[in-house]
């Protein structure tokens, strides 16, 4: 009896399974990575458009109002009115968790308005660990390259300049999306791909198992017949019925066995000739 690890069936099954694992693993890795990247890019584009659109809603008078805000004005009617406007706009973009307006002077960034419901930045609060893309928004709308973490959490953000009548950037409006929302979507894609791949592996494994078992079963039949003939048992016959290469082999083998048996029988009964 052949040892398990040297048997043709084991080699065949292991080879096919390794092949499937390599192919599906590579496909999963590439598909998962690319689809997550595509989702992130799509989210970034959507955020950029949203914040750019928000930036168009501010008039010269609004900028004048914003310029007048100073520390301690957080409860003033003008400030609360600005907060309401930002929240109204945010209600049209349910995926955005926060809109805010900042002033940028060189490398110094300070909050002017923040519509966050919980723990908002106050007028004049300095933003100490900004997303690097925030500075790009002085020139043109920009969006985070990836998730970043600051004092309020992990976000992906988009920014757009608020320009005065002379075309100079007076403020920058920003919008945040909670990273968990994007990650949840990415995980959904990853999980879906994972289940599809797992199903494909199971199905392929099942088909390979059937394929290899049927081939090996017939090869074992041929092997057993040859073994019996070699030991002088002429009562056996080749019982393999296939229309593929194994079937052709069985037919050839059957003819050889039949001839051998005829010759052996004649040797046993020489008078019959």
């Amino acid at each position: 009896m052949k040892k398990f690890f040297t048997s043709l069936q084991t080699k065949l099954v292991i080879s096919f399974l390794l092949l499937i694992l390599v192919i599906t693993g590579g496909t999963f890795l590439i598909t998962n990575t690319q689809s997550k990247k595509a989702l992130l890019d799509s989210t970034r584009d959507d955020m950029l458009q949203t914040v750019a659109l928000v930036s168009t809603q501010f008039t010269a008078a609004d900028l004048q109002t914003l310029s007048g805000f100073k520390a301690g004005d957080d409860g003033s009617p003008a400030y609360l009115s600005m907060i309401r406007r930002l929240r109204d706009m945010r209600s049209l973009s349910p995926n955005m968790v926060n809109f805010y307006i900042m002033s940028i002077a060189g490398n110094n960034i300070s909050f002017v308005v923040d519509d966050a419901v919980s723990g908002p930045a106050l007028v004049g609060d300095v933003y100490t660990d900004p997303d690097p893309r925030l500075f790009d928004a002085v020139a043109a709308p920009s969006v985070s390259d990836n998730f970043y973490t600051d004092a309020w959490g992990t976000f992906i953000s988009a920014y757009a300049p608020l320009k005065d009548a002379n075309g100079n950037t007076a403020f920058v409006v920003g919008g945040d999306m909670d990273a968990s929302q994007v990650i949840t979507r990415q995980n959904f894609i990853g999980t879906t791909i994972y289940y599809i791949m797992a199903g494909a592996i199971l199905f392929a494994g099942f088909m390979i198992a059937i394929f290899s078992v049927t081939i090996i079963k017939d090869i074992k039949k041929l092997d057993k017949t040859a073994d019996e003939i070699s030991k002088g048992n002429t009562k056996v016959s080749v019982d393999v019925h296939r229309s593929d290469e194994i079937g052709d082999l069985a037919d050839s083998f059957g003819r050889m066995v039949a001839s051998l048996k005829i010759m052996m029988d004649m040797d046993e009964q020489p008078g019959d000739k």
Binding site: R255, V257, M263, M266
Partner: peptide, 10 residues
Amino acid sequence: NYFGPAARKF
């Protein structure tokens, strides 16, 4: 085709 080269003897 069925008995191989010993067909005629068979």
